[in-house]
Nucleic acid binder design. Structure first.
Lengths: 133, 133, 133, 133
DNA sequence: GTGGTCTAGACCACG
DNA sequence: GTGGTCTAGACCACC
């Protein structure tokens, strides 16, 4: 599991972990029953405090995506893929909706907005395998 | 000048004021020389702490968009329209870019992303003159 | 709002806060719109770390019982009373069920169990206004 | 000796073993001199870490309920039945007391509590010979 | 002033 | 070894 953390971004680190784990499960690169790294290991790997990782894991657990069993590493639940695919679409749609609403409310014309969207869509796809920062 | 504040939204209130003023000037509904409401009046109208309004005005002033002259209401500068049009495009583009980057990194296919964009674009345009909440 | 914390009990402090706030709302001694003490104040009052209080508040917020608005004290939501009454009954019922199931599985006869229940019920009611520790 | 372990329940597994053995002896289904399964066997049967079984046995031994003799399986002591009957009542009473105290402190009325107790008592007795999960 | 986030480090229970 | 809880103290954004 490879995560990319932007410690100085606007989003809290623990949320970045939450959404990236969600995306990884939605995409199938983490499957039900898979054990996830311990809070200590992942904290070390991401150069982040284990408590921060823990907080992300707790959120995922309370969402039914991860399950903890005493003394054992947390693992992906059976329901996780469905939940994550659903949440992924919801997250992505919500963000796109907010951006487009703002664009419309800015007074830009439909054509201007469309052009920006086209340009950025091409750019985003092109950057698919590059580091994003 | 009509502003719509979402006190529980993810964006800070003062930023909402800044961008909406910027958009209003870019769109031409606020013109150079126009006086803007006092901190106290706008705070009252938006049901928002005057300090919050103040903070927005300070940001706009430091950006050269508003100017204060002693004892008189702040007003829109001569350079504001050009500045605001530029910033508007930049703000909008940046938000769209971030949303699309996230969509790509989520593992959704290009087609799925495009479909969401189309749907939300239609929806955002349709909702152009409706209140969004 | 008066809470009684048992720092050495089997239940985590933050859970004690969560259930006691829930009970207080269910009982009507905290009402929708009421502001609750700041994490700092309550932490000081209970001789507990503010972060521990915060954790309880976050749980209550994620359950829709408390709401935070930027820079303002958290307050009880409109839906809280209904939610809390429901949760109260569920918590109490679940605990009683577990205790009785254990009693039955212990091999005690129905009469013996009933006698214990009667005795402890009388005792619990009698102790209603005494300190419980 | 048949034990039912709930690995995801709130109680530690080793405690579940301790109380169930205690109850079995109190109920007479395990008698003084009876040999109990080895740590390894029981661990295998319950799909539980042998260390966990060991911990339960140690507790029971230190309570004088089980005795180990070199090279032979542990066995139930002569004093065990008396001890276990006593502990059984104490355990059951303590749990019932805690549940009822919580119920009272929750602000539910005496009548409401009584109704819940009646309902759950009926249910617990009815489920006496069914599996509880 | 408020809550939100993060770090660091400790201790515990469980397996 | 694992996760769970708690403390202490710091910094930040917002109002």
């Amino acid at each position: 599991m490879i995560l990319h953390i932007h410690p100085d971004g606007p989003l809290p680190i623990y949320e970045q972990i939450v959404t990236q784990v969600t995306f990884a499960i939605a995409a199938g690169s983490l499957r039900p029953g898979d054990a996830i790294p311990s809070v200590r290991d992942l904290g070390h790997e991401l150069v982040v405090n284990p408590n921060t990782v823990m907080r992300a894991y707790q959120k995922l657990e309370s969402d039914g995506i991860l399950a903890a069993r005493r003394g054992r590493p947390m693992e992906v639940t059976a329901e996780a893929p469905a939940l994550c695919r659903q949440q992924r679409l919801q997250i992505v749609r919500e963000r796109i909706r907010a951006a487009l609403r703002e664009a419309v409310s800015s007074g830009l014309t439909s054509d201007e907005i469309k052009r920006v969207v086209e340009e950025e869509l091409a750019r985003a796809r092109g950057g698919q395998f590059r580091e994003k920062r």
